[in-house]
Simulated scan of single mutants.
Amino acid sequence: MTSTPPLPARFDQKTLDVIGSVLSSNHLFYRRFDGTKSFADEAIEAFRNHLDIDYVATTSSGTASIHTALASLEIDAGMEVVVPPITDVGGLMPAIFQNLIPVFADVDRDSGMVTAETIQAVLTEHTKAVIVMHHSGTPVDLDPILALCNEKNIPVIEDAAQALGATYKGKPCGTLGTLGAFSLNHWKHVTTGEGGFVATRDRALFEKCHHFADKYWDRLNSPDSGKNVKNHRIGLNYRLNELESALALDQLPRLADLVARRKAAGDALRYLLAGLPGVVPQSDPGDSSSSYFLFTFRLADNATREAVLERLLLDASGRWDASRGYQNLLHRYPVVQQKAFFPGGVWPAEVVSGRKYDYNNIQLPNAEFYHDTSICMTLHQGFTHEHVKEIADRVKSALS
Rank of each mutant, 00 (worst) to 15 (best):
A40T: 07
A349W: 05
A161D: 01
R298S: 14
V140P: 06
S38C: 04
G345E: 04
S72I: 00
I375Y: 11
G325L: 06
D88P: 05
N150D: 13
D54E: 04
S323I: 11
F342M: 05
Q338P: 01
I157K: 10
V336W: 05
P94L: 06
S400G: 15
I96T: 05
V103G: 11
V122F: 07
S374A: 15
L220E: 06
A166N: 01
R254I: 02
L100N: 07
P144K: 03
K208Y: 02
T63H: 02
D143C: 06
I66T: 03
V83W: 06
P144F: 05
V83F: 05
L269T: 12
V388E: 14
F197I: 01
S60W: 02
F39E: 08
S222C: 09
K14T: 09
D202T: 03
L146S: 02
V335Y: 07
A77R: 13
V130M: 04
L243I: 00
E158C: 01
H331V: 10
Q282M: 13
K215S: 13
V259I: 04
P172A: 01
P348C: 05
T167A: 00
R261D: 14
S111M: 10
W347C: 08
R324I: 09
T296K: 11
L276T: 10
V89E: 08
K208G: 00
Y271G: 09
F206V: 00
T192I: 01
T124K: 09
E207D: 11
S289D: 04
S225L: 12
E194Q: 00
V18T: 07
E45R: 06
L100P: 05
I375M: 09
A264P: 07
D106S: 07
L176M: 11
A300H: 10
P6F: 09
I145G: 03
A307P: 05
Y370V: 14
H126T: 11
T373W: 10
S25Y: 03
S222T: 13
K215Q: 14
T178K: 07
I131H: 00
Q162L: 05
E368Q: 14
R201V: 02
K128N: 13
A121N: 13
T200C: 00
L123Y: 10
P5I: 15
Y238T: 03
S323C: 13
C209L: 02
V114M: 15
E390Q: 15
D34K: 06
L379Q: 05
L236D: 05
I44H: 00
A246S: 03
D41Q: 05
D41N: 08
I53N: 02
A268H: 10
R109Y: 10
G193T: 01
F206L: 01
F97L: 06
A9S: 13
F297T: 12
W187Y: 13
V103W: 12
P94N: 07
D110F: 11
R233K: 15
P144Y: 04
F297P: 12
L364F: 11
R261A: 14
G78C: 12
V280G: 06
R233L: 15
A213Q: 03
A9P: 10
H331N: 12
L313F: 07
M79V: 10
K188E: 01
R10I: 03
